[in-house]
Each structure stands twice: as C-alpha cells, then as structure tokens.
Design a protein around this nucleic acid. Sequence first.
DNA 1: AATTTCACTCAACGAGTGTAGAGCACGGAT
DNA 2: ATCCGTGCTCTACACTCGTTGAGTGAAATT
Lengths: 195, 195
Amino acid sequence: MSESPRLSRAERRRRTEERILDAARELFAEHGFERTTIRAVAAAAGVDPALVMQYYGSKQKLFAQAAAVRLPQPPAEGPRHPDELIDALLTALGVKLDGLPATSLATMRSMLTHPEAAELARETLTRQIDDMTGALSGPDARARAALLICTTVGVTIGHQLLSLEPLRDAPPERLADLLRPALRGLITPPESPAP
Amino acid sequence: MSESPRLSRAERRRRTEERILDAARELFAEHGFERTTIRAVAAAAGVDPALVMQYYGSKQKLFAQAAAVRLPQPPAEGPRHPDELIDALLTALGVKLDGLPATSLATMRSMLTHPEAAELARETLTRQIDDMTGALSGPDARARAALLICTTVGVTIGHQLLSLEPLRDAPPERLADLLRPALRGLITPPESPAP
DNA sequence: AATTTCACTCAACGAGTGTAGAGCACGGAT
DNA sequence: ATCCGTGCTCTACACTCGTTGAGTGAAATT
C-alpha cells in the first residue's frame, strides 16, 4: 500500500493517471464498455471514482484513450510474397503470439454493442483492408482482402474472447500452421476472373 | 392501428405475446442486450413495459427466448465431400443468403459482452464444431473444424454486424465463391500429419 | 343482466449509474 | 513556521433502468 514517498508530486500524479488507464484497459477488454463502470475502474486503480472523471472527462473519453489503436507497422506497398503477407496477418492479429494487447481487445470486445467502438473498429479494419488490398493481385482484391481480415478477426474472437476450447488448448504455432492454407486460398487470385 | 375486433381474447393475447418477442429479437439483434431496454421493446410492440415483464418474467428470460437457437439441420455423420461441407457452412452461417435470422444475430451481437449470450454462443459453436469434426479426416480435425467455424463467424460479423463496406457491397454469391478456396484449405488435411 | 376472468395499464420504488462541486490534506515554495 | 497550489476524496444530484403491485375495462361465462 505505502509507496516510497521519495516520488515527486508530478511523478505520483503521472503514475496514478496511468494506473487508472491500465485498469480501464483491462476491464474494458474483459467486460466491454457497458459492463465496465467508472466505479469499478476506480476501485481497481485504488482511487476515488471522481478522480477518474477529473482526469479523463467522461467514461466515453476514458474508453477512447484506453481503446485507441496505434498500428505502427509500416504497410508495405505493392504486391508481396504470399508467405510474407500471411505472417504479417497472423502476427498483426495476435493469432501467432499468445494474445493481443488489452487496447485492441477492448475495441474488439465492444465493437458489436458500442457504437463508438464499432466506428473505431470499422476505421481500423478498413485501413488494414486497404493496406492488404494493395498487396494483392488479381480480381476482387478488395473483397478478398476484407475476407482475409475478417477471417483472422473471427479466429481471434473464437480464441481470445470466447475461449473456444479447441482453440484455447491448441498451441498458437499449430493454429498458425493450420490457418496458412486457408489464408493462401484467399491470397491466390481466384480461377474465374470475370465470366 | 385498429385491428378487426373479431379475434378471440386468447388469440389477441397470443399475438401481442409474439409481437413483443419479435420486437425483442429485432432490438436485441440490432443493439445487443445491454443497450436494449424493456421500455424500448414495449414501445416497439405498442405495449406497456409491465406487460413484457408479466409475460416473460425478466429481461434475461426475454433474451433467452429471443435468442434461443434451433439448429434443425440433421448433421451428416462420417466424412463427406468437401464441396458439400463448404456449402453447408456457407448456408448455415448466412454468408450465402442475404442474412441470418434475427435470433442468431441477437446471440452473436451480444456474445462478447453478455455472459449468458457468450455461454449460449459457446454451446452452439462447440456443437457445430463437433459436427464438423466428424466430417473431417486427417490430423487436428477438431482444431481445423474450429477454425472453419470461426472463419465463417468472422465473415458474418464483418458482413452483417459491422457492415464493412467491401463486404456489404459485394453480392453474397461472389463472397461465397471467393471464400470457397479458403475453406477448402482448412478441410483438406494438412501436409505434415505428425512429425 | 350480473358476475367473473383476464389482458393490459398506471404509478411508483429501489438500485445503480455517470457526473459535478465543495472540501480536505499534504507537498513544495516563501 | 506559514501559506499556496494541487492531487485526491466525500457527498450528493439527476437520471435511467428493471421490476412490482394495484387497478381498469372489456370480453367471456353464468
């Protein structure tokens, strides 16, 4: 409980602010926007609910901060090798690693029920679809890119958010290997271009 | 507004009961459990909120009725032809047709944020995974089946619940065609069975 | 026609929520 | 030692929600 009092006031403030944000991220990711209360966030951060408001203005703004997505990967322009694309997809959506950051999970968890999260998810996913489109060749590139993204989203949901038993128990590397042929089926240009 | 008064009392009651359930299904499917209020359901059904309670007991029970899933398709036992499986998947999850019934959408919409919906979704999906597993040959059948289901779930979410523009605008048949190779990539037994 | 039954409404309670403003206590400067 | 700034808490308001029990009017039964 008692921290070392050798911290400057500004530093202590910065830390509580971050402690609140961390608690918010975790709770939003686990329970979604509606079921996460300011009071619960405050309690998890060991702080009065009013302080959360004072620092972040509103529950909505807190969520916006907690769920803000940053995609730092510089998207490669122009077509690339399929295997490269596949690995990028798998890592980007956390199937390969043991999980996505709470930030992304918070958005995903709420995107079906909270309008603002839905908008955020749409923007992020559309952006990823566009990047992927540029890397695909053949007809219907944009639709195929969308299907690629949606596939990994679906797997992530089943794996991380629903914890479906067959996916939860399987090692991530195995899942990635099994998923590869499917993704390749979307990356490879379809047979009948335009009848 | 004014119905023909030539209906028996029992019949009128049965109809309002169903009118309430229909309204509930639609609102649950569109906004999810938390954002759908009993008052809104009642208003949509042209009825007093108290009546909803009287008929269905609680909001939770109303949701259970509205989201109850019935999978009438008799699952085929034993391995089948890939194309048969693919078509079954596509129709079952509504990618092929123009949409799923509100009943299914209600469950899907809320499964990430409402515990009971999550449980319902887990049961339904696990059931489908098991059925699919029996139809697959080769190693990791269960994991591959799970990935198959999750893929279609992801596409359905992107298409029906998020309305991602590339999927919304594309004709369902086209999407089904583009998706086929990907599904086939999961149905076909992987190359390295067991090292 | 009188009485009973029942689909339905009215009004309200209690709990929980996001949020606001006043106040307290302690670190830092004088 | 004193005073100020500020990180933080206390208390409370306004609102919405699910839920309840009494009441009403018309249909069904006698």
